[in-house]
């Protein structure tokens, strides 16, 4: 009968206990997500519209800077940029916000008995919702590019685009797992925030978002040593696979249909996603009883 710390559930079964706490936690997550989305652009004149405008403007800046370098022969270069940046932005937003979420919510965690998981989960869901908003921006750019390249341009509106929803769960698992690791480390070492910020800059450049990795792959085939090294780095970078998959389904349909991503590509994505998810969950669940004494 001794049940240290457990409250009120002595008579209930394990299953109904899990169910109650799941229902409770999912409602908390829902409210947190609502707050995250609203707080982002509170007091700005156009509010939530920024979630669509933001990726568009970012893409425009990159287009102005890089189109003459990497997009010379590519009429769909704007699309190439946008696919990469919004995919990467999902991961970046989710992880940077989740990293500090446990410590920033210390007021809640030390005064209420709530699950520590709700904060990283809420930030990851918010990032997915923001991603969904940027898909509206993507559609706008697709329309623009299609009109510009009339009549062949309209081939980009193919049902293949729906394959993005095959990638999305894997990307969610990946950034969620990474978020859990970062949030855990941040509780014990605040320095990780600065390391991670620098690392993210590096990561942004190592992920082919504005340049074309195919150039490196071609040079590596030809026997160039440094190109081989760069190709290797690009290939072990999980974000490359996510970005590449998304671009394959949206972009390559347009440029002649080089081929849809195959089952092997999907396996790679889910390998990274599940791997990160498992490691993150393990690290987080083992250390979370100690969080409260360190936040």
């Amino acid at each position: 009968m001794k049940n240290s710390g457990k409250t009120g559930f002595l008579q209930k079964s394990w299953f109904s206990r899990k169910k109650t706490s799941f229902v409770k936690n999912s409602y908390i997550v829902k409210e947190l997500v609502k707050r995250n989305i609203k707080v982002q652009y509170r007091n700005s004149a156009i509010g939530v519209l920024w979630t669509i405008l933001n990726p568009l403007l970012n893409m425009l800046v990159m287009f102005i800077v890089f189109s003459s370098m990497f997009g010379k022969n590519d009429p769909y270069y704007a699309l190439y940029l946008l696919c990469g940046t919004i995919t990467f932005a999902l991961m970046r937003n989710a992880t940077t916000q989740s990293m500090t979420s446990i410590v920033n919510n210390r007021g809640l965690l030390t005064k209420n008995k709530i699950s520590q998981y709700v904060f990283p989960v809420a930030h990851n869901i918010s990032a997915v919702i923001n991603f969904a908003f940027s898909l509206v921006a993507l559609l706008a750019v697709m329309l623009f590019v299609a009109i510009k390249n009339y009549p062949t341009g309209f081939s980009i509106f193919s049902p293949n685009i729906l394959l993005v929803f095959v990638m999305l769960p894997a990307l969610f698992l990946f950034s969620y797992g990474l978020s859990l690791v970062l949030a855990t480390v941040y509780v014990f070492f605040r320095d990780i925030q600065h390391f991670y910020n620098v690392f993210l800059t590096l990561w942004t450049y190592l992920t082919p978002m504005f340049y074309k990795p195919e150039d490196f792959f071609a040079n590596a085939e030809a026997g160039d040593v440094s190109a081989k090294l760069i190709s290797w780095i690009i290939n072990i970078n999980p974000m490359y696979h996510f970005v590449d998959y998304f671009r394959d389904v949206v972009y390559f349909c347009a440029s002649g249909g080089i081929g849809l991503p195959g089952f092997g590509d999907v396996l790679v994505l889910y390998g990274w996603g599940l791997g990160a998810f498992l490691v993150g969950t393990l690290v987080f669940s083992l250390t979370r009883p100690k969080f409260i004494y360190n936040i």
Binding site: M1, K2, N3, S4, G5, K6, T7, G8, L10, G107, L108, L109, T110, K111, N112, K113, P289, I292
Partner: peptide, 27 residues
């Protein structure tokens, strides 16, 4: 008692639902 801390030693038995009002507006 609220279950936020686990005691280092000893046992805590709580029978019923607990509402901790430890700080108003903590959230």
């Amino acid at each position: 008692i609220a279950g936020i801390y686990k005691p280092t030693k000893g046992s805590v038995l709580v029978n019923g639902t607990v509402a901790p009002l430890l700080n108003l507006g903590a959230g």
